[in-house]
Each structure stands twice: as C-alpha cells, then as structure tokens.
Design a protein around this nucleic acid. Sequence first.
DNA 1: CTTGATGTGAGAACCGATTATCATTCCGTC
DNA 2: GACGGAATGATAATCGGTTCTCACATCAAG
Lengths: 125, 125
Amino acid sequence: MPRPSEHFIAVIDLLEQAPGPLSAQEIHEALAHTGIGLATVYRLVKRGVQTGRFTAVEVPDGPTHYEPSDRPHHHHFECTSCHRIFDVEGCPGHFDELTPEGFKLESHEVFLRGRCSTCVEESGA
Amino acid sequence: MPRPSEHFIAVIDLLEQAPGPLSAQEIHEALAHTGIGLATVYRLVKRGVQTGRFTAVEVPDGPTHYEPSDRPHHHHFECTSCHRIFDVEGCPGHFDELTPEGFKLESHEVFLRGRCSTCVEESGA
DNA sequence: CTTGATGTGAGAACCGATTATCATTCCGTC
DNA sequence: GACGGAATGATAATCGGTTCTCACATCAAG
C-alpha cells in the first residue's frame, strides 16, 4: 500500500499527463492498480481545487472533471462515442459582441462535440 | 382544474415567451397558479422533446432546461446571480479551426456567464 | 513502544434531478 | 348518468454523483 501523500502525487501526475480533464471516476479507474479508493480520489481533487492546484470543469450532463490550473486559456471537446474530454487550444473570442445590452460578461465556455481521432478510425472512417 | 391538454398548451406558451430555456422546476413554479404538478411537467417536456417540439439544453452543473425547437441557431448566457439562462443571438463560428487533427466536429455550444441586466442594476451598477 | 494527528478504503448515507406508482379525475361516447 | 381510456397530482422510489462515517493503517515525535 502506498505512503500517505503518494496518492496525491499520483493524481497530480495523472492530470498533468492527461489529454484533457478527468472525472473522479476516471481518475479512480486510471489509478486502480495503486489500490486507491474512490473516497480518497474525491478528497484529493477537492483539496486540489481548494488550494488552487486544480480547476473544476463543469460538463453539460456529466460529472465534474478536473484539470491542472496552470493550463493556458483553452476549451474542450467531448467525444460523443467514448465520452472522454480533450483540451482544444485557441479560442474564437469576440464574446462581448454576443452579450446582450445591459449584461455584464464575466467568463465563457466553449464545448465542441464529435468524434475523437480514436473513435473516428474505429467506426470505419 | 384545467382540461387535459390545457397544461401542455400552457407549457408551450410559457417556453415561447421565455427569454431563454427553462428547467422543469422553473416551469412548475411559473405555472403554479394552474395547479400543475411537477410530475406532469416532466411528462410534458419529455413528450415535447420526443415529438421534436422542444429541445433539451444541457447546462453545466445544473438541471436540463427546455426551449422551443424552432429557434434559429443561438447560444446561452447564464446569470451567476439569479441563475436564469438567456438566449443570445449570433455565433462566433470558425470552430473547425479549433478542432484537433483527426477529430470530427459534430456540434458546438457556447456558454456565456456573468450578470444579467436585472442583477447588474440590483448590485449597484 | 506509545501516543496522537492524519490518511485511508469500504460502504452507508445523502442530495438534487428524474421517473414510477397509484388512486383519482377528467373527457368523450354511449 | 354509466363506462373506458387517458391525464393528473402526490408521493415514493430510483439514479448518478458526491460526501460522510468509522474502524484501521500510517507516520513523526517523544
């Protein structure tokens, strides 16, 4: 069984390497070989968010995902087949122009949806 | 007590007039004076979605909202204060340019977040 | 080794959203 | 005004996600 803080390091490393934000479930499964419990995963991601190390990504119709906070501004792509979420670089911008009169824009999110490269190939491209 | 299909018409009218998609809870509250039950609201919106009359709008970290299907392409603005959701016209477009190599883009969503005009005024603009 | 503070895994409990159940009400038809 | 099928409201049940509980393991310090 791993030492105390070892779990936390494992979660940090996992999120750093991941191609996009991961849910608690996904983290749990990815680290299953370490014997980490689901409750511990929730404890660690919560701690990570509270200390500013992780950012919580709220996904439409899905559980909260987590990613390292030190990523530059970006958005997300959700595969409709495997339901994994990938980071996408860049941003279309100009959202102020869409904002209705009298409204104050504070932030924005863009969600792309479709097939990731793996699932495109599988389903006979 | 209203006649059978009267409820459905009331929901349709409500969604038509609303400035943005509404949740089942919001519909229930808005039509409280008619005595409609929450279960009936869920039944009617489900029927509306199945028959193509309504579109389900999945909101990050919130319940499903519903809007008439016949609206032109648009996006949404969520007020961080009153949590209501408003339609916003227009679309920044050019999302293919953001899509990673090998990925197949099928759809996109844009969520703006901030203060609606009502809440901007209240909080001493 | 003992102690105490903290971390941990398993599972129970909780929560908001949604669906199922069921007795009742409504409506059109006879 | 009795009958049958569909709609309804209240509430229980369910569901996925998350948090809580608790007995146990771990570690650092004495």
